[in-house]
Design a protein around this nucleic acid. Structure first.
Length: 500
RNA sequence: GGCGCAUUGGUGUAGUCGGCUAACACGCCGCCCUCUCAAGGCGGAGACCACGGGUUCGAGUCCCGUAUGCGCUACCA
């Protein structure tokens, strides 16, 4: 049997990183098994669903490199099928019409209301099967429906017995039927289908063999199994994955934690897709042969297995008050690791895209200066954490309009008044370098000059770094000379005197 | 309230059939390298494996209980 899995996000708000991880695991599972990875947009809640959100899901998957097979399924388009399935269950006596008027429920304190209602009914001793319409004679039910009386459709859950299934991650799961109420399949309003019904009917329709999703669906799985059984269809294999928590151990949510939770944030803040994907894969999963953590997509696919998924939730570690830790440190490290080690040919287009986005790109970078551009990117990549750094700290390499870092000016230029005179003199010396303008020839010239003036080479080197790049940190100074070229290097050395 | 799940250094994790002086990565600290900062190399601090019982010669690993957290419990998804 061919493996068919699906990623089924609901399009409300931007794509959550937890959802993205679920998508990733589904993708890895499908690819490893040589099966199909399908995308289904669960947009049955039309009030909250937006096209923009659907776009962010599609873009997010694309960014992560998770291509899906077959056409996207929009759940809302299948409502008629879902309804027909429920009605068929009424026909077969496996579900019934409930003519009880709908209770109005305030959306804000739902959880609390549920708890209170449960407490009350346990005190009164009412059980889950006490619905008076459960055993209403069929003829009467038909008649009332025909007369236009509104009704919801509920599944008739057995009075006795136990539901059980083997979850690939959490193991054997059991639940007494007594704990499951006769769940509503169709709303009284317009007989519109509810989540549990829609999911099951769609999964059947799409031929899903493995349902890999968040742990928040674990207990509801029993309800869904009941629907599968009523429909007379065998159940798929289930695998639930632990949730991702915020540092204070609460569920990571879009509302509370904002943009760190959104996948697009990582794209927009200079993450390399492969790096973030790698990081995400390691959150709640670990390879059986855990020797290295930096893994290519191929390696991840090869290593992936449901058994490697953990049962305990993972904490996504970040600190909102510290801009250096705006997201998980390990994610940042992983990104830096990718930036400095990935093939230059893959990195350059990403840097280009970043430059184009902020208007720093010039056509020459891709034409006459292409070799130079790549060499420069290669020179500075080593100490960068995100793609944004190329246009931030690295701006001076690509443009004459850049800012000087205050602290750097203070530390490397202002501190030594003699530099006001030394720098222009050094500029003249550098300008006069014979032959090729390389790191070696520049170094020789600078060191000779330092000896002559009896100052430490380090003084000139550090001053030059700030003069040429605006920064106090960066690559070897002589390579900066080489990359900037004679003309720009000399000009910047001269101009820097005015900063002292 | 009921049901379910989880609990190894700050974070992510490894710990097969019980034998650990509890391993790795990120982060942190120090040293080396050095023109700065990284990277790299070396080293260090940091966990009585949530707590309490039990089984056993021996428990992070098995059993019971407690606590805490999370999830579900809806005519939300």
């Amino acid at each position: 049997m061919t493996v068919r899995v699906r990623f089924a996000p609901s399009p409300t708000g931007f794509l959550h990183i937890g959802a993205a991880r679920t998508g990733l695991f589904n993708w890895l599972y499908a690819r490893k098994a040589g099966g199909k990875f399908l995308l289904r947009v669960e947009d049955t809640d039309l009030q909250r669903s937006t096209d923009e959100s659907t776009r962010s899901i599609i873009e997010g998957l694309q960014w992560l490199g998770l291509n899906y097979d077959e056409e996207i399924v929009f759940q809302s388009a299948n409502a008629e099928k879902h309804r027909a399935a429920a009605l068929r269950l009424v026909e077969e006596g496996k579900a019934y019409r409930d003519f009880t008027p709908k209770e109005t429920r305030s959306d804000t304190n739902v959880k609390q209301e549920i708890a209170e209602r449960a407490r009350r009914s346990s005190e009164e001793g009412t059980d889950q099967r006490s619905n008076p319409f459960r055993d209403l004679p069929r003829a009467e039910s038909d008649a009332r429906a025909a007369a236009g009386e509104p009704f919801a459709v509920r599944l008739k859950v057995s009075r006795e017995g136990r539901s059980r299934f083997e979850d690939a991650v959490f193991g054997m799961q059991e639940r007494d039927y007594a704990e499951i109420e006769d769940l509503v399949l169709l709303r009284s309003e317009g007989l519109s289908p509810l989540y549990n019904l829609s999911v099951v009917v769609d999964d059947i329709e799409m031929g899903i063999t493995h349902v890999i999703r968040g742990q928040d669906h674990l207990t509801n799985t029993h309800k869904q199994i009941l629907i599968y059984e009523a429909l007379g269809v065998s159940v798929p294999q289930f695998a639930h994955m632990p949730l991702i928590l915020a540092p204070n151990k609460v569920k990571l949510s879009k509302r509370k934690h904002g943009e760190v939770v959104s996948l697009t944030t990582y794209r927009d803040r200079g993450f390399v897709p492969a790096a973030f994907r790698n990081f995400l894969a390691l959150l709640g999963w670990s390879p059986a042969t855990a020797e290295r953590e930096v893994m290519t997509l191929e390696e991840l696919t090869e290593e992936f297995s449901l058994e490697g998924i953990h049962r305990s939730p993972a904490v996504f570690n970040f600190n909102e008050t510290d801009p250096r830790q705006w997201t998980d440190q390990k994610a940042l490290w992983m990104n830096a690791e990718y930036i400095r080690t990935m093939p230059l040919a893959e990195l350059v287009p990403m840097v280009r895209a970043e430059f184009e986005a902020i208007g720093l790109w010039r056509a020459e970078f891709g034409a006459d200066e292409r070799v130079w551009f790549e060499k420069t990117v290669d020179l500075i990549r080593e100490r960068f954490y995100t793609l944004k750094d190329f246009s931030g700290q690295g701006r001076a390499y690509f443009s004459d309009e850049f800012e000087f870092d205050e602290a750097a000016v203070k530390k490397n230029l202002k501190k030594e008044p003699r530099l006001k005179e030394l720098l222009p003199a050094l500029a003249a010396r550098i300008e006069a370098v014979d032959g090729d303008f390389t790191a070696e020839t520049c170094e020789a010239a600078l060191r000779a000059f330092a000896d002559e003036r009896e100052v430490k080479a380090g003084l000139l080197i550090n001053a030059s770094r700030t003069a040429l790049s605006g920064q106090s940190v960066g690559p070897s100074m002589f390579h900066i000379f080489e990359v900037l070229g004679r003309e720009r290097a000399v000009k910047r050395l001269r101009d820097a005197a005015s900063l002292i």
